[in-house]
Simulated assay, not measured.
Amino acid sequence: MKKQILATVIGIFSLNSMSILADQATINDIEAAARALDTVSLQELSQSSDSYDSALANYRLAVSFNVKADSEAANAALDQAMETMEGLTAEEPENPEAWALLGHIYGTKIGFNPMKGMYYGPKAGKSIAKAKELAPENPRVNLVSGVSDYFTPTLFGGSKTTAIKSLSSAINQYADDSDSGYHWGLAEAYVWRGLAQMELGESNKALNDWRAAVAIQPNFYWASTLIEKHQ
């Protein structure tokens, strides 16, 4: 289980104020399998890991199954990830990484089941707000916040411009994150920023972001597919 020693600085917890005992190698294995949509490896990683790592593996497994149009398996994996992270946030309420991933999972649940937006939307919002309160300069917190802004209707405070701002902050913050033990999401941040750029009519900026994602992760299926579609 992830263990952290949290140092308080004027009541705000940030990634730089944490001493994190974590297994970055497992995170790297999860991300490599996810980029290749390798559901077999992701299932094995979800079972051989615990706590945060297991939840991340199940989250990536859910997304991979969804891409492969296996909605039943996707929802089952996502529900398992959700259960794990709800338990972890209850056990470690001052852990911003846990709140950020839980918010991401709730948001994905809405993507899988839009009719459940009224239920999971407030949960996602509260989880992300808690993560931002604890660690406003954490790259994954800003990644998840940016994705939330991308999908949230303007009427409810979302905006593609705000999404780009949060995602740009995340991309900049990843430079100091490589040894965090939770390092994932840099290429993903570029993809989401590119999607927001495309929505605003900035196709060249979008393509540049997707190419940056592929430069970071050459076998990134999602980014490569977007480039092929829009170039």
Rank of each mutant, 00 (worst) to 15 (best):
H230F: 14
D53M: 06
L155R: 11
A36M: 13
M115T: 11
S178N: 14
E72Q: 10
V67E: 11
Y59E: 05
S145N: 15
Y119L: 12
A36C: 09
A36T: 12
I10R: 15
R211T: 09
T89Y: 06
A135D: 08
L167Q: 00
L207A: 11
Y182H: 12
D179L: 13
S17R: 09
H104I: 05
F156C: 05
I216E: 12
G201E: 13
Y150N: 07
N138T: 00
T89R: 04
F156A: 14
Y221V: 08
Q231E: 15
T161R: 10
K123N: 11
D177R: 03
A213G: 08
W222M: 11
E94P: 00
Y190Q: 03
A57H: 02
F13L: 13
W99Q: 02
D38S: 06
V144F: 09
D50C: 04
K68E: 15
N219Q: 14
W99C: 06
Y106Q: 06
Y119R: 13
Q80G: 10
I164R: 01
A170L: 05
L37F: 10
L102Q: 02
F156E: 11
S48V: 07
D38T: 04
K123S: 06
S145G: 12
S41A: 15
G111S: 08
N142K: 12
G125C: 08
Y190E: 02
L102I: 03
L37I: 08
F151C: 09
A34D: 00
L56N: 01
A206D: 03
D38V: 07
T39P: 04
